[in-house]
Design a protein around this nucleic acid. Structure first.
Lengths: 343, 343
DNA sequence: AATCATTTTCAAAGCGCTTTGGATATGCCT
DNA sequence: AGGCATATCCAAAGCGCTTTGAAAATGATT
């Protein structure tokens, strides 16, 4: 059923039917009701493509998901993030279109989305420091909003981020207050902006307490279970092993826990662990009592908010870009305790 | 830059330019080269919407992701699956459009995609037994392919599935051969087709060995870490605790491992664990030596294959629906060993 | 009853592409 | 040179919608 057929069916012109359906005032309430009912019974919905052509809007938002071609890894937070964003889109009649793309082809994808006029805007995932995508999108004139930030980027742009620095500063402080002096950091890949900020917060706390930052206690890599395991095995086996580990993801924290077990140690007693927790739906940090002491911030909520922000930016193209800094919550769980006494 | 501008720029008609770009034969090689170069320098790409309108194809595939509104959970395999499917789509010039939707609104979403002519076909995720979506899509005449199968559905349809029954039968056999007699099953939600088939394989093996199927050793629920933990805690604490646990997901297996630790038992010695492993990029089952003994089948690979299947079905609408049954690989890891001797 | 303002409806153009049917140019043969 | 096939290109219609500018219907006013 298309508009023409529907209007013939009603004995009205396409104009009137279109206006009735789109809420224009110049249609009598009686006619509008009649049209709406007919649309419902015939299950009529305007063709997205035709509507898009006519209005010049795509009514779609693009998400370009980089897949690190080294590990072919999809960021595990991605599912929850788009679940949040998707809610917002469907409420506003937008479609979400997804491009999975190898790191190095990203630029081409953004260019393609723009020149094919496939989307009205895009969400930028996983920003790195000095991320080249931001100037690119700026040049292309494609509205965008960033999940995270890109340190070193001078241009103004819309973003939403967790306050990674303060979260990790606070977590490190917390461990210090428990008496820990050798605190390790198992972080995300160097170059990712969030990892950089977390390290900054961690370092700032150590320095503020007169401790020095020991490279032997820092690891950076893709945040898998295995990476957490190996990093922790490594550090716990060496001399001057840490008594506490700060971890960038719940998944690597699970690996850290496995390493602690494997070394015959007890988590929360011999070794304390604090992790960041994105509050993923399939990976809850325990039930009522958290398993891990964690800095928590819901990534699904972030998706909802950032999508809202982008739609607002599209609706008001000349408004200054919005920002939103979320504070993570520090949840005390069972994985932390006082530093063990030195023998 | 649009087609009109590009063709004026070249001093050619829109027809010729369009044909040159779409590989039609009635264009001289010289002209084609000239057109292609101009398209490149001006970064011209046809508007998806206009092209779709003109051809009647949407050049897009829909993925409708159900979010169980009880737990608001996004299936963790989803990211890897669409990473695989996305590869296939972009190679064929298709877009992927995603709808995140609460269970109960699914039907409306499919109807909407159809009547808005937003997609050329859809992938059905997470089929349940007697899944109503299959007859619905059949009626709508919207091409589709199912990731999994729907027992009890008489209609022919295209699907790709892991042989869940044989995988779990084999895993149970394996545990039996190690001497285990009390083997528990921590499964996905009842009603999901895959969970049903896995239980069937498990039961069939037990019965074949003269064991009876004990409801006290079976749990079904959303496959989270916490669910695995609680189920295992529960069963290991009771009388007649299992000596082996069969688990439907690596994530819940991590919970099972935590429960085993918590009970002061040793995995692979006091309690053996076998899990299904979807080979997720961010949750590898260990490095060279698997942590868990597992039935493994790559969900990303499934995404690639199923997408290919759907595109083929769209290209040849009258061909009979294709099927593909993948056999999972049994990987022996460190989580299984001979059944402990009874005291 | 005639006039005017307002409400309600309409015909037609345009969005950017593909594709049909036709026109023109080119090369080859006799 | 004339005739024919083939190669190359084009104008215009159509995809399903929105929207402009105008017409018809209605009601209020004199």
């Amino acid at each position: 059923m298309n508009l023409k057929e529907l209007s013939q069916n009603l004995g009205l012109s396409q104009t009137t039917v279109s206006r009735a359906l789109n809420g224009y005032p110049e249609v009598s309430p009686a006619t509008r009701a009649r049209v709406e009912e007919a649309a419902k019974t015939f299950n009529y919905r305007p063709s997205t493509r035709a509507k898009g052509l006519a209005t010049g809007k795509a009514l779609a938002i693009g998400h370009v998901i980089p897949v690190s071609n080294k590990h072919e890894m999809v960021n595990p937070i991605f599912g929850d993030f788009i679940a949040g964003a998707g809610e917002t889109y469907s409420r506003h009649g937008y479609e979400m279109i997804l491009s999975i793309v190898a790191d190095e082809d990203e630029n081409q994808v953004y260019r393609g989305l723009k020149s094919r006029r496939a989307v009205d805007g895009v969400i930028v995932h996983g920003p790195r420091m000095n991320d080249p995508r931001i100037p690119l999108l700026h040049d292309l004139g494609l509205p965008f909003a960033v999940h995270g930030r890109a340190s070193g980027c001078a241009l103004p742009y819309a973003w939403l981020d967790v306050n990674n620095r303060s979260a990790f500063l606070r977590a490190t402080d917390f461990l210090f207050d428990l008496g820990h002096r050798r605190i390790a950091l198992i972080n995300g890949i160097e170059g990712m902006d969030f990892a950089h900020r977390r390290r900054e917060g961690y370092s700032a706390s150590l320095l503020a307490h007169g401790l020095h930052v020991d490279p032997a206690l820092m690891r950076a890599g893709e945040m898998t279970e295995v990476f957490g395991f190996q990093s922790a095995m490594d550090m716990l086996g060496g001399p001057d092993a840490p008594t506490a580990i700060l971890c960038s993801s719940l998944i690597s924290a699970l690996g850290v826990r496995r390493a602690i077990d494997e070394r015959g140690l007890v988590i929360g007693k011999d070794v304390s662990v604090v992790t960041h927790d994105d509050d993923l739906s399939y990976l809850q940090n325990g039930g009522d009592v958290p398993i891990f002491t964690a800095t928590r911030s819901s990534v699904r909520d972030a998706g909802r908010r950032l999508a809202t922000m982008l739609l607002a930016a599209i609706a008001a193209p000349h408004a200054p870009p919005q920002h939103h800094l979320l504070e993570a919550e520090l949840m005390i769980g069972q994985s932390t305790g006082p530093a063990p006494k030195r023998d």
